[in-house]
């Protein structure tokens, strides 16, 4: 299988501050890749580069073989990259159903309104939000808003899903549920690139793990390889609890 997403020497800088420094890695189609690293490592910036929010100063980003650097975000969305943001942005005055319908209507599949609504209803069932479909999105609690954010991204029928800390703030039961949801999304043929701080979740679910530190890529490999990598452990020694979690392989 070829790489659906390939970053080649991507550098993102803001004036003198280099947030992402010469990062290259591949994401195979149909896989789940975890993107981890200490806070401020540049993970969200990588996401912003991939979906066109920031333009890299150097490097190329190949999506299905096509360089998407410089493409406006709405075009990238239509090509099949959808994103669930870390800081959720529900459309508060629209209903939950309408929120997800927007995803379905303007994403890769570009469905018509009626078809979009139907798909949105289905995705809401899958994510357990069906009973809140006609409520305004602003009335949901934080965990529900996170699920709405994911639902909206999934409804677009993307080929690549960028999931930014979707598990943050969830209790263990909810985390388990969400891992199941991710697995079923992957099984439906969607490639997933996820930023997470929950080590056990990432290691458990990912086929491949990419580690960033201070904007640089310090390790790429299977979860086992990455966990054993001394450079990775050292990066996390700044946060001993994270290093501990990294080394322990809690189920």
């Amino acid at each position: 299988m070829s790489a659906l997403l390939a970053l080649r020497g991507v550098t993102v800088a803001f004036g003198g501050l280099v947030a992402v420094d010469d990062v290259s890695f591949d994401v195979e189609e149909g896989s789940i890749t975890g993107l981890i690293g200490p806070n401020g490592a540049g993970k969200s910036t990588v996401f912003n580069a991939v979906n066109g929010v920031y333009r890299p100063r150097a490097g190329s980003i190949l999506f299905d073989g096509r360089d998407i650097v410089g493409m406006p975000s709405q075009r990238i969305a239509r090509l099949g990259i959808a994103r669930a943001h870390q800081v959720v942005r529900p459309l508060t005055d629209l209903t939950v159903l309408d929120n997800v319908t927007v995803g379905a209507c303007f994403g890769r599949d570009g469905l018509g309104l009626a078809a979009g609504r139907r798909r949105a209803a289905g995705v809401l069932e899958q994510l357990g939000l069906a009973d809140r479909a006609s409520q305004p999105a602003g009335s949901l609690n934080v965990a529900q808003k996170k699920r709405l954010e994911l639902a909206r991204a999934v409804a677009a029928g993307p080929r690549l899903l960028l999931a930014d800390e979707v598990l943050a703030g969830l209790n263990p039961h909810e985390v388990d549920e969400m891992l199941g949801v991710f697995a079923s999304i992957r099984d439906a043929g969607v490639t997933i690139l996820m930023i997470e701080h929950l080590m056990q979740a990432v290691m458990h679910l990912s086929d491949q793990v990419v580690v960033l530190d201070y904007g640089r890529l310090i390790a790429v490999g299977t979860p086992a390889e990455v966990q054993a990598d001394p450079a990775v452990v050292e990066a996390y020694l700044g946060d001993p609890r994270a290093a501990e979690r990294l080394m322990a392989d809690e189920p």
Partner: peptide, 11 residues
């Protein structure tokens, strides 16, 4: 509601 979110959603 949110023009920046609209862009990322493909509008």
């Amino acid at each position: 509601e949110d023009q920046d979110a609209a862009v990322v959603l493909g509008i």
